[in-house]
Design a protein around this nucleic acid. Sequence first.
DNA 1: AAATGTTATTTGCAAAAAACAATTAACTGT
DNA 2: ACAGTTAATTGTTTTTTGCAAATAACATTT
Lengths: 219, 219
Amino acid sequence: MEPTYPQPLVMVDTALFTIREERLCLILTRRREPPFEGVLALPGGFVHVQEDADTEMAARRVIRSKIGFDARYLEQLFTFSGPARDPRGWSVSVAYYALIPLTLLDQSQAAEALPVDALPPLPFDHPQIVARAVERLRGKATYSSLPAFLLPGEFTMNDLHRIYEQTIGARLDKASFRHKILEQDIIEPIPNRFRVGAHRPAQLYRLSSKALTPFERKI
Amino acid sequence: MEPTYPQPLVMVDTALFTIREERLCLILTRRREPPFEGVLALPGGFVHVQEDADTEMAARRVIRSKIGFDARYLEQLFTFSGPARDPRGWSVSVAYYALIPLTLLDQSQAAEALPVDALPPLPFDHPQIVARAVERLRGKATYSSLPAFLLPGEFTMNDLHRIYEQTIGARLDKASFRHKILEQDIIEPIPNRFRVGAHRPAQLYRLSSKALTPFERKI
DNA sequence: AAATGTTATTTGCAAAAAACAATTAACTGT
DNA sequence: ACAGTTAATTGTTTTTTGCAAATAACATTT
């Protein structure tokens, strides 16, 4: 009962976000094959039906091969499709976006992260994927724990405050932010852990288990 | 430069919501072919690369062939994939959900709409698609104009109030609801149009152009 | 014509949340 | 001990929400 129709090509593309120098950035990759050989693009690849349990696993595979480890947060974004988006033929790309703390990247990877508002011309329909990814991230940032995944496992309230401001691109009141975040139980103080310096020590926090909604999950 | 990998089957599935007897319902279809011939399922079908400009057009085609006209609101939901979700092989299903006013359906279609909390056992991974669709609709209902698309083009404030309560499944304050909706500019009064009866006439409203966010669109 | 029933719409007030501005706390280094 | 710096809290004003009641606009009945 296989359909007799010719089937589209199926691939995944990933938008890998990080924060560098106070700006929301994307990690791009230089394509090693045609089409668009040598051009900077979103990391992506074909789904491998032999080895991938689903498209999310394909996305994880792509991400690992790019940065060497798993993203702290990965979520399906949108599926792009059509005859024209890829010169190789009618294709379907399941796009994902991921959040990666800059501190986990090595020197050269970190340097390659480019601000989302100053990207080079991108091939395929990657500009649309980027637009949607930024929109989604900004939209979710205001009411979820997402931006926390751009930080390493331990962070101060001010770290978190800054990263929310940078992903949303707007100023947030310090006291209200603190209150709202703590009330939502998405982070918890790590007992007796403080960041010290030439000033009052800052309580260190970590994400709590309530940080994600049911359909989202850490990988 | 075609990939040599075997490619997945690509299909679309649709969750068609309507409100019947104060309850959120889905319009199912009885499958005419194997697998699962004769079983109630979400309307769906393969993508036709010859005629479909993208998966959204495939979804529209499926919806038209089911109910005979276009949905008032259509949005991509999520893409499901894997070797086991369909017995025909490794497949990708781009799922959509749509909102359809009951009044537009004919008698037999309307009768087939079943409450989301009392569905029969569904084939494939359709239960997961339904769960995600209901989650998305309920989630968006609280802060968007979505539920209005379950109503015909003209409606009263009380119609709208009721349909929001029914999709969300919770009670909403009358005065606050009115205030919030009007403040958001998602609907506008139709000048000099009222629903009359044995009581004070009710102002009729319609959706305004601001009713949808950039990435959403009417079809 | 006035009273009644019914649904629509507005108003007023208390409670809660958010925004804003300032103060207090806890360190290091001099 | 004091200055400098960042953390954390507190108090006050403004805005939003929740709740209850009052008023408005009819058709129908008395």
